[in-house]
């Protein structure tokens, strides 16, 4: 029974997509970019190195670093040009907004000093 509780139950939840633990993803620039920004914002038709809508590209760490360092996209919470504002109150991506957990991960990276930029 204990084996079922410890091993089978978490696997079953994982397969169902529910997850079993709170968010312990490390808030590094690489994780923020490659697990959040690239699959959601960096799709080829949007903010990718191929298309560069509004001049932004988030599909690679290198491209995201260049985008942030260009200074056109703020990382401040209350700035309408902020990546957090765009993905939060302004609901980007428009058809598929970022979940609260991903916004919290980006916030944790900012609070941690934006390491990796």
């Amino acid at each position: 029974m204990s084996i079922i509780m410890k091993r089978v139950w978490p696997i079953a939840f994982a397969i169902a997509g529910c997850g079993t633990s709170p968010d312990d993803r490390p808030p590094t620039f690489e994780v923020v970019t490659l697990t959040v920004l690239a699959p959601s914002c960096g799709q080829v038709q949007c903010h990718s190195t191929t298309t560069r809508v509004q001049g932004y590209a988030f599909d690679t760490v290198e491209a995201a670093r260049a985008t942030f360092n260009a200074g056109n996209l703020s990382l401040s919470n209350d700035n309408p040009e902020s990546v957090l504002y765009q993905s939060g109150p302004n609901r980007m991506p428009p058809d598929s907004p970022l979940p609260d957990e991903d916004l919290a991960l980006i916030q944790a990276w900012i609070d941690g000093g934006k390491l990796g930029l």
């Binding site: 997509g17 529910c18 997850g19 633990s21 968010d23 993803r25 697990t35 699959p39 957990e101 991903d102």
Partner: peptide, 14 residues
């Protein structure tokens, strides 16, 4: 459709 962004994080799916 179903997409789980990270199977280790509770509730991170669409």
């Amino acid at each position: 459709g179903h997409y789980t962004e990270d199977t280790s994080v509770k509730g991170l799916y669409r």
